[in-house]
Design a protein around this nucleic acid. Structure first.
Lengths: 237, 237
DNA sequence: CGACTAGTGCTTGTATACAAGTGCTTCGCG
DNA sequence: CGCGAAGCACTTGTATACAAGCACTAGTCG
């Protein structure tokens, strides 16, 4: 979604940087942001920072309360479930649209991706990057690659929940194996098997959320109408 | 997507107003916008107008070219197809998640909606409002009402194409009948029939796009890398 | 007459100043 | 000592000033 059309602007840089920091939990859910502080630390004025925060707010990754402050959204289980439903619906439907003869270059790219996923010493962020590329690639196979952009934009809360999960329970190997199953079924032309494998895979991540929530409740949103209060330390009540 | 949390701000007003004008074609695809002009005509400064345009740009409804100008996006057939795929995947998957016992109040609301759709003298915009509420309501039945927000945000190009179609070929009655079929199947608990009816319905709209495009090509985007040039009149090349 | 060039008026991007509101803190008073 | 109120420090929202770049136009020179 090239909203500012390739041209390098400081807003685009800052937006991408902040987004990355939120998604990777470098900015923790619930953390207080300040347009002034961010601007100062990045060496720009409030304007590009503010415009970036507005974009992130529309994506649901931050919340802006007028005259009070801006905060990294806590992970909302409802939004995680919504994103889960959305991506499952889209990725399964995409499998139904696979053409008879697959793009050989793309298949090769996916196989190479999986090969790298098997590397033992794999940074968690590297794994997430490969995982994203793999799922995106599958949708490109069926000609719906651009739809991934919408899914990716909507699944910010899901991604953060997944990172919380993998931080505790390091087992990307399991997911890599499931990726193999899916790709094999796709290449083999067995759409029903691919659908089953995909569904199993997508729901595996989703299982652990309640456990994580019990472990770190402060990172999750409680009721629907929680409001932050600015204190010496940030408190949500 | 309450990004500014209910509080009334002029940005929110302007954003909603501009969005409405783009979706209803009151601002034609390809039209040149100007932050200064819009600000003057709305009696505010550039700031809230500019921030609104940035949000609309992220949704793909406008395009901002630094130092050149802002333009209402022409309808992009590729994005129309993407939105079509997305909504079909999501709405069909939603039907699979319908509970055994439906929310009676919601069903009543949907029946009332359909009753109003049958009114002979129905403004086109009124029909679109009812149509939106109907599809949204169906997803609420299966507990995925919030996902509609994401779908709605992504289908701006599709909505504009639909409006172009209905402007030429006034037959909301056909769609209203299809809505009835879907709801009857849902209430009857026949999910496969509901799926079939829904798919037929969603694809009916999609059929006419090529015809419309031949009729009014200037409203559609041509290649992938079209760029507007500011002239006495706006030209895209 | 034609081609090139400086200039003009527009555009968006960024920086800054001011407005309005919130929560805490501290000071004054009983 | 307890308590209330005024003020302070901070927040985001809006308005305005300036910077940088593109497209066209008019003028000038060959």
């Amino acid at each position: 979604m090239a909203h500012t059309n390739g041209r390098r602007t400081s807003r685009r840089d800052i937006y991408l940087k902040l987004r990355q920091m939120v998604l990777t939990l470098e900015l923790a859910p619930g953390a207080a942001l300040s347009e002034n502080e961010l601007a100062a630390s990045m060496g720009v004025s409030r304007t590009p920072v503010r415009e970036s925060l507005i974009l992130l707010a529309q994506e649901g990754l931050v919340q802006v309360f007028p005259k009070i402050g801006s905060f990294v959204s806590r992970v909302d289980p409802a939004q995680v479930a919504d994103a889960q439903f959305l991506r499952e619906a889209v990725e399964l439907a995409s499998l139904d649209d696979l053409p008879g003869d697959l793009d050989a270059a793309l298949v090769e790219e996916l196989r190479d991706n999986l090969k790298r996923q098997r590397h033992a010493d794999l940074d968690l962020e590297e794994f997430f990057t490969l995982d994203e590329a793999f799922h995106h690639g599958l949708m490109r196979l069926s000609g719906h690659g651009n739809v991934w952009t919408t899914v990716a934009a909507a699944k910010g809360h899901l991604d953060r929940a997944r990172r919380l999960g993998l931080h505790e329970n390091e087992s990307p190997a399991v997911f890599a194996a499931q990726h193999h199953e899916i790709l094999d079924a796709v290449v083999g032309g067995d759409v029903p098997l691919a659908r089953t494998a995909m569904r199993t895979h997508l729901r595996a991540v989703f299982q652990d959320i309640e456990r994580i929530r019990a472990h770190s409740p402060e990172l999750f949103a409680a009721g629907a109408s929680t409001v932050p209060v600015r204190r010496n330390v940030v408190v949500w009540e």
